[in-house]
């Protein structure tokens, strides 16, 4: 089974041998933020991790903490808030006291939005804010300037520039349609922009199609072997599965990082990480927005890092095949 929408790592260490994951798992949700941060400011060291006390956010935060420490960051604050929290002042006061360079964490939409808003109201002086879920949701723009320059991970964005060239750079195969084609066909079919849920679902079908083609048969075990060997680039990003302890876990796909920026006075999402996918440069440090006409200035660049692939073609028509996966995924997401 190809699952989409399910981001938990723990599905894959239970001994199931026929579940393959499309989403980047929770353990790597925010690690990219730290890479991005390091790239933008090699001297920054202090990170505050403030997360919602739910299974998912906790997994993400715990993994991010371990990753941060391994990479030489100092985690000055690591604390959970209760689901449904609306008053972040005590966290903000702690953040003010600990003076971190970056804040990462979050949980769901409402809390992330509120947190970002209150950080802005209190003029918290940090260089980077990266939150789960909320910044990826279009409604995040409701909070206006408080949203500006906030970053957050997303499984996929229409702006992500995965191409045949990026696949080539990595020396792996490109498979399926291009980002533009997917975007266009999706809009034709449904009349609105695809989000990462749609892309993940489509990718699941695509991956299954590719596996069946590689196997040349519908035999379960053969298809499974093809999936184990798979390492491809698609419009959705790289796909590769773990075959060890966390069997079937996604290890190829990377989160993309969005940042809310201003274009012609309007708040827009831009992909700023990884380099291979980015549509705009990261604005760093974000506190430039507190300056009078913060708007257009001070863009610093995050560099390096790649990940790419190369295109191949073939539209995947097997969305239907992914339906089972999607429904499981939906159930799991509900739980998160």
């Amino acid at each position: 089974m190809i699952t989409t929408g399910a981001a938990s790592d723990s599905i894959h260490n239970k001994g199931y041998t026929h579940i393959f994951q499309i989403y980047t798992p929770a353990s790597r949700y925010l690690t990219g933020a730290l890479d991005m941060f390091k790239a933008a400011d090699p001297n920054a060291k202090k990170v505050a991790i403030v997360y919602e006390n739910s299974k998912f956010a906790k997994d993400v935060a715990t993994a991010a903490k371990a990753y941060a420490e391994k990479n030489g960051f100092e985690v000055v604050l690591f604390e959970a808030y209760a689901p449904g929290t609306t008053d972040f002042s005590s966290f903000i006061n702690k953040i003010l006291a600990k003076k971190p360079d970056a804040i990462i964490g979050g949980g769901h939409f409402a809390d992330g939005e509120t947190f970002a808003k209150q950080l802005y109201e209190k003029k918290v002086d940090v260089k980077l804010v990266s939150l789960l879920v909320a910044p990826a949701v279009p409604e995040f723009a409701e909070i206006g300037d408080a949203a500006l320059y906030v970053t957050g991970p997303s499984q996929w964005e229409p702006l992500a520039k995965y191409t045949r060239e990026s696949a080539k750079a990595l020396g792996i195969e490109w498979y399926g349609l291009s980002v533009e084609e997917f975007d266009k066909e999706y809009k034709e079919a449904y009349g609105y922009d695809p989000g990462y849920h749609a892309a993940g679902g489509y990718a699941a079908g695509l991956v299954l199609q590719k596996a069946i083609e590689d196997a040349g048969t519908l035999d379960t075990e053969e298809v499974k072997k093809a999936l184990e060997k798979m390492d491809i680039m698609t419009f959705y990003g790289r796909i590769k599965f773990e075959t060890g302890k966390y069997y079937g876990r996604q290890i190829g796909h990377e989160m993309v990082y969005l940042q809310w920026q201003k274009k012609d006075g309007k708040l827009v999402k831009e992909v700023v990480w990884p380099d291979a996918a980015k549509s705009s440069e990261l604005v760093y440090p974000m506190t430039t927005k507190y300056g009078e006409e913060a708007k257009g200035k001070a863009k610093e660049t995050a560099e390096e890092k790649q990940a790419q692939e190369k295109p191949k073609s073939t539209p995947g028509f097997e969305v239907a095949l992914a339906i089972a996966g999607i429904s499981v995924a939906y159930l799991l997401r509900r739980k998160l």
Partner: peptide, 15 residues
């Protein structure tokens, strides 16, 4: 308690 004491202890202890 919610705003001052939490400077020293984790906020989840407030309840």
């Amino acid at each position: 308690i919610e705003n001052v004491v939490t400077l020293q202890i984790p906020t989840s202890y407030v309840p």
